[in-house]
């Protein structure tokens, strides 16, 4: 099966970073949740973000598609700066896929409808094309036989794979993952990670908040460590795990690696 909407590669400059966060700050009320975040992600680059709970990892990646609003600094995605302009925000959201910890599939729609919704209403594809695209990506995550079921009838791992396919149907330039496996029963973690690894091998730009160190080692170009709203350390996976610099990184790693 082939993807019916395969396009020629984008014409945007390939060497420009696709995501740039420059001096980003964010507060929830008085609580300073992101402190001077600087991050630049190249096309095709894969980044894993880790850090203790409450350190601001989710908030940071949610700022990238404006599910949260930052209050200082600049965020530029695919050459568009995020401002209050809702049209620009919608445009960026269409280019940035997001996978949530709790899947957030639409329970009143079938799997196929979940997947074809975005292509039909945002990309304005004809229904038949959108459904073909949906089936193509369902097959990619090995779940095509569930196309006509409702999300509630699937296991957690299957639901998360559907959620990944739903994002892919939009042909995103970047995929954000917010702890995609941490709500899953242990036996289902692998099927979701496998789908993500496959995606990585195809060259997708990915930012993944995760504590799956095996995954980070095998696909990440860079690993970031966040604590108290700051990026404290970033390095290649090998260096990051074998030779962490920051005291807090060492402590964190010792806790999750035992």
């Amino acid at each position: 099966m082939t993807d019916p909407t395969k396009e020629s590669p984008t014409t945007a400059p390939e060497n420009e970073p696709i995501i740039k966060l420059i001096g980003v700050h964010k507060w929830f009320g008085d609580f300073h949740v992101l402190k001077d975040i600087n991050l630049s992600v190249d096309r095709g680059e894969r980044i894993v973000v880790c850090g203790p709970s409450g350190s601001g990892k989710s908030t940071m990646i949610r700022c990238i598609n404006r599910l949260e609003e930052h209050q200082r600094g600049k965020i530029i995605v695919d050459n568009i700066e995020l401002t209050n302009d809702i049209k620009k925000i919608e445009k960026i959201r269409a280019e940035v896929g997001m996978v949530f910890q709790h899947f957030n599939l639409f329970p009143h729609l079938t799997v196929l409808e979940n997947l074809s919704l975005g292509p039909i209403w945002v990309r304005k594809f004809p229904r038949t094309v959108a459904e073909q695209t949906a089936l193509y990506y369902l097959e990619k995550v090995h779940i095509a036989e569930q196309a006509h079921k409702y999300p509630g009838q699937l296991s957690g791992g299957q639901q998360q794979r559907v959620a990944i396919a739903r994002s892919l149907c939009m042909k995103p330039k970047v995929m954000l993952f917010d702890e995609p496996t941490s709500a899953l029963d242990p036996e289902m973690v692998k099927e979701v990670l496998d789908a993500m690894i496959e995606l990585a091998h195809e060259g997708m730009t990915m930012i993944v908040v995760s504590h799956e160190m095996g995954f980070a080692r095998s696909v990440a170009h860079r690993v970031l460590f966040m604590d108290h709203g700051q990026i404290l350390e970033e390095n290649t996976p090998d260096e990051f795990f074998s030779n962490p610099q920051n005291e807090r990184t060492k402590l964190f790693l010792s806790q999750i690696l035992h």
Binding site: R93, V96, M98, F100, N104, F106, L117, S167
Partner: peptide, 18 residues
């Protein structure tokens, strides 16, 4: 309706009325 439903819809790029 849980907030996740709004967020999932928004992150697909749907506008308010959609």
């Amino acid at each position: 309706i849980p907030r996740g439903q709004y967020e999932a819809a928004e992150s697909l790029g749907l506008n308010y009325s959609q």
